[in-house]
């Protein structure tokens, strides 16, 4: 994509390094040969990675986290795409209100959301179920996903869908054949956001996990409470590498640029 090459000034480089320091520390502690977390490390070993991968608790909660994150992404997309369409194609007067409402979960403290959800789920007898946990995770990821999709949809010329209709496509066909492909990168971004928000989440999971169903961040937290060996650091390092992959994918899809108001793909 022929974008203009951006020059990174010193400030931006310093700032980026500052953001990366904690990650570097975590990675460094993971290779400490001793059975304790220490920075800088005394030597180099990859044994803790083996331990981390082979610890059954980590294995099961990693699988659970991945499963929940995938389900949350799919359910989240099923909810956010129609929402975004409704916001962009709906009544102009209602648009800012609906838009603000969908951002609320983002600015409310997670704890309160989790508490509210817990009370609600207890009332309907769904507490401690996987469904409740998934719902909570979807709720956390939805605001950003909706915003990304709304931004992308606003960049699609409304006439395009109407042109498809005049050419013989029903409304549904026009949406699927014309609009959906145009916002595919944004849908990818939204899915990634939903995935990350679910995978990373601690507070909601803390309230809504059923006993024996702990997600990876919770397991790691619990492990740290009673252990001080670098297994957690090794696990974190694996996650950091995975996140980097996701970050690259996200930037390829346009990621946050959808939010910055530059989604238009029409030529100048």
């Amino acid at each position: 994509m022929g974008r203009e090459r951006v020059r990174y000034p010193a400030f931006a480089i310093c700032f980026t390094l500052l953001l990366l320091v904690p990650l570097v520390v975590v990675v460094a502690t993971a290779v400490n040969p001793g059975a304790y977390i220490k920075f800088p490390p005394d030597g180099f070993t990859l044994d803790w990675f083996t331990t981390a991968v082979e610890t059954p608790r980590f294995q099961s909660s990693l699988l659970l986290s991945l499963r929940i994150a995938v389900i949350a992404s799919v359910v989240g997309l099923a909810l956010t795409i129609p929402t975004a369409v409704a916001i962009t194609r709906g009544r102009r007067r209602l648009r800012p209100w609906v838009s603000t409402a969908t951002v609320l979960p983002l600015i409310t403290p997670d704890m309160l959301l989790a508490l509210g959800l817990l009370i609600m789920l207890v009332q309907i007898g769904m507490a401690s179920s996987l469904i409740g946990l998934v719902l909570g995770h979807v709720l956390i990821g939805m605001p950003l996903a909706v915003q990304v999709l709304v931004a992308a949809l606003s960049g699609v010329d409304e006439n395009v869908e109407q042109a498809a209709q005049t050419l013989g496509a029903s409304r549904a066909t026009a949406f699927v054949r014309v609009t959906l492909p145009a916002i595919l990168p944004a849908i990818g971004s939204a899915a990634v956001f939903l995935f990350i928000f679910s995978f990373d989440n601690v507070s909601i999971s803390l309230f809504l996990s059923a006993p024996g169903q702990t997600t990876l961040p919770i397991t790691m937290f619990q492990y740290l409470e009673y252990n001080s060996d670098p297994t957690v650091s090794a696990m974190s390092t694996i996650l950091i590498v995975l996140s980097l992959v996701v970050a690259v994918v996200l930037s390829r899809l346009g990621g946050l640029s959808h939010l910055a108001g530059s989604p238009t793909r029409r030529s100048s």
């Binding site: 010329d157 395009v160 109407q162 209709q165 005049t166 013989g168 054949r177 492909p181 145009a182």
Partner: peptide, 28 residues
């Protein structure tokens, strides 16, 4: 609209952005 067999050329042209010129023309 989609059963009228009436074509429209829009002010913004409203071409399908993800389709090639050929696919745009072939759509109808």
């Amino acid at each position: 609209t989609f059963r009228r067999n009436i074509s429209m050329v829009f002010q913004t042209w409203a071409l399908f952005p993800t389709m090639t010129v050929r696919d745009n023309v072939a759509f109808g």
